[in-house]
Amino acid sequence: MSATFTKSMARNIYYGGSMFFLLLFFGLTMHTTKVMPERDHRENLTEAVERGKGLWEVNNCIGCHTLVGEGAYYAPELGNVFYRRGAGDLDTFKAFLNGWMSVQPLGIPGRRQMPQFNLTEPEVNDLAEFLKFTAEMEVNGWPPNIEG
């Protein structure tokens, strides 16, 4: 670096630049949270969805699965599983999910095993409501196809 570019110039770029972009980031985040209701459809956020999210969390589902692409990459994407396994119908999906959760672990030698979480039927239904809510959020058209 040439002698004309001094340390204090570098320091000013650091302080000025990072403050500017931090403020810009906060401003954009505020705008984002303002317009999010029309995309996340929070009018659908029922108590069942909320309970379902709690169950999702205390059973560490994110430790194997992804949800809208974030999480572990060990088990299938669940952000759109409501469409993949329930064809977008809540009753179909609840029936599927109750059946699927009850037969775990499948015990096929060498296959990745999903643990048995011993959830009750109402709990699995809450989980289904949560996954429906997630599937109905508008996330800019992701994933590319139904397989997630």
């Binding site: 954009l28 705008h31 984002t32 996340d40 809208v68 692409g69 508008e138 996330v139 800019n140 992701w142």
Partner: peptide, 11 residues
């Protein structure tokens, strides 16, 4: 923020 319930400008 590309694939969250966020505005497209984030892309």
């Amino acid at each position: 923020f590309f694939w969250l319930a966020t505005p497209g400008y984030w892309q």
